[in-house]
Amino acid sequence: MRDYERYIRYRTFPTPWCPGCGDGIILKAIAMAFSELKIQPQDIVVVAGIGCSGRLPTFFNTNTLHTTHGRALTFATGIKLAKPDKTVVVISGDGDALAIGGNHLIHAARRNIGIKMILINNGIYGMTGGQVSPLTPQKFITETTPYGNIEPKFDTVNLLKASKASFVARETVNRPIPLKQVIKKSFQHKGFSVVEVISNCHINLGRKNNMKDPIAMSRWIADKTVTQAQFEKIPVQEQNTKYPVGIFVEDKERLEYTELYYKHIVPTTQAETIKANSTAKRQKK
């Protein structure tokens, strides 16, 4: 048994995912990141919402919470505040994180609470059979955009930048080794971190858009993947069709939320209480 397998809960296999789904690659990348960083399973809490991504925690041999649609970050906020020393990981999909849970995403980023988020972007609601998501590319055919998607997608990186996120990165399932590396980096980051992973849903997105199999979809992802340097040279009007990869923000200076809370609020109030008590005692004397 390789060390990263300690982090995988084989008793719950098989997974509910379609053959060729990118979620398996992400599962392994996360397990390998845990293993290489030597974070012990008892010190990890994995939280997820609803969707194909929501089933990921079931397969980690740690403390795993499957919660409600869009709210994973808020459950994780409660856990992180109650257990600040644990590695709290949230796994979310694009619908989960940016549609129903979009508000929680920007607030978690604003607070800089030490949650490590893996945002799996397959551009579609997969579990429900292929409806448009806020990250579906324009013109794509889905079950709810039979004439093509007219809505622009969110620019996740800039959305998070504007929300003051302290760690933002993007990778794709086509590049499992860089993916693992960037996940490792995000796990080492103290504040709120987001790694957006571009993944393939050939069944519910590809099939309707001339990319029936995982190979065709991963070719499409490869074609859209650019380095940040290459991205800068692309005309602005075409930028929205590309996925630049790598780390976009890494701010190590910003204090993490639970650290601020326990180091600032709690001692300040307790010092005040002690001061008030001693004044009261003196007055009694």
Binding site: V47, T67, F75, T77, G78, K80, L81
Partner: peptide, 13 residues
Amino acid sequence: LASIAALIGAVWG
């Protein structure tokens, strides 16, 4: 929505 979710998380903590 976030408030009650955070409570449930904290109970697991």
